[in-house]
Design a protein around this nucleic acid. Structure first.
Lengths: 207, 207
DNA sequence: TTAAAAATTTACCGTCCGGTAAACAATGTC
DNA sequence: GACATTGTTTACCGGACGGTAAATTTTTAA
């Protein structure tokens, strides 16, 4: 019984630090984040961070992977579902988060988006995000391609279509987060339905 | 002859500081911007900034308005043009910048986008950006409404359509800037044409 | 020409922040 | 139970950064 009891020793500490970093980041923002702020969010002292991570930059890099993993882990795919249903499901997951309103979801997205934007100034972080973005877009493109192959969707340029949908999702989330437009995701959902997806269903009866 | 000669006294200094701030911001990023960096970008000493602005925050707030004014000033409207042409022109301006490749355009957009994202942590800056975003979206919605009124466009929800286009533009620019996807604006342009604008032209012959 | 006002520079300071070293506690091992 | 290893805390430092005060130059107004 080396773990899961009162003392959290070793591996769990990194997890504790990650969560504390999340809270600190979400309160102070990337620019004003101090190691001290992270320390204030945990029961341990801030110096313990230096034992587990090689300085502030290393910590933030690890955190970046941590929060991206959480994002991707929350997107569940269902290969067997009908393509129209599955496409809608994936769009909804990206726009509204996993299942019934998780209260921390938008807080996480806020931090995620801030890190995303700051990554433009750091080659390493930028690459991590680029790969991640690729996977998210890929999960949309995938369904579009499947739909085209089986003849359910019009034979459009799947990459371009997937990219467009991903962009709209991204922008709507960013608008909700940065400008406080609470209805942005819902409105984006409607716009996608009314103005974009019809290009996929063109030859069919709309319902 | 109080100005416009060798000595730049008074009003011009603020302009010099703004441009120096732009360069410093574009080199170091918002997070790592030091007053010293701005000083290094001008011929004057960094302390002169404190004479013209009330500290770092005041400087950045002024800079925010400065760069937004530049953005909006670069968008030219033509009320007389045919609505389809005018809509395309405005989309292009937002996506590619004013006229033939201005080399500083994307550098300015990079700074603009970074400030935009950081604004989420500052109520005052956030409001400035929100108003600005409203005006940009408005300039798109406007054309769509005109087109619907004169019967050139389908009677869609103009606000939703304008918002969608604005979102796509914003996302594509962000992707080019943050992830280095050089072709994002061009691809977005094609996607808008192929998958979105057709909802406006539905009853007409496509060309 | 000269004195006041405005603008800029030089020199300097207090504080804040990331990081480290050494002391201390807990855990595992024989 | 001793002792090495790992993990955490306490105490502290050096440098960096924003800001200021006073000296200096430039401009404006008589």
């Amino acid at each position: 019984m080396s773990e899961s009891r009162d003392k959290v020793s070793s591996k769990d500490t990194r997890q504790v630090i990650m969560e504390a970093t999340f809270r600190a980041l979400s309160e102070h923002g990337y620019k004003d984040l101090r190691m001290r702020d992270i320390g204030d969010e945990m029961e341990l002292t801030r110096q313990v961070i230096h034992y587990h991570f090689d300085g502030k930059y290393d910590l933030l890099s690890s955190f970046l992977e941590y929060i991206i993993d959480q994002y991707e882990g929350s997107v569940e795919v269902n290969e067997d579902a009908e393509v129209r249903t599955e496409l809608n499901a994936r769009i909804d997951q990206c726009l509204f988060g996993p299942e019934f309103e998780d209260f921390s979801h938008w807080e996480r997205m806020k931090v995620y988006h801030e890190l995303y934007t700051y990554a433009q100034n750091d080659g390493e972080h930028r690459e991590i995000f680029d790969d991640h973005y690729d996977r998210i877009r890929g999960s949309i493109v995938e369904v579009v391609e499947d739909g085209i192959e089986e003849g359910t969707f019009e034979p459009v340029n799947a990459d371009r279509m997937g990219q467009l949908i991903t962009d709209v999702i991204h922008a709507a989330r960013g608008r909700r987060i940065s400008l406080g437009h609470e209805d942005a995701p819902e409105e984006a959902r409607k716009a996608i339905d009314e103005f974009i997806l019809d290009s996929l269903y063109a030859s069919q009866t709309e319902d």
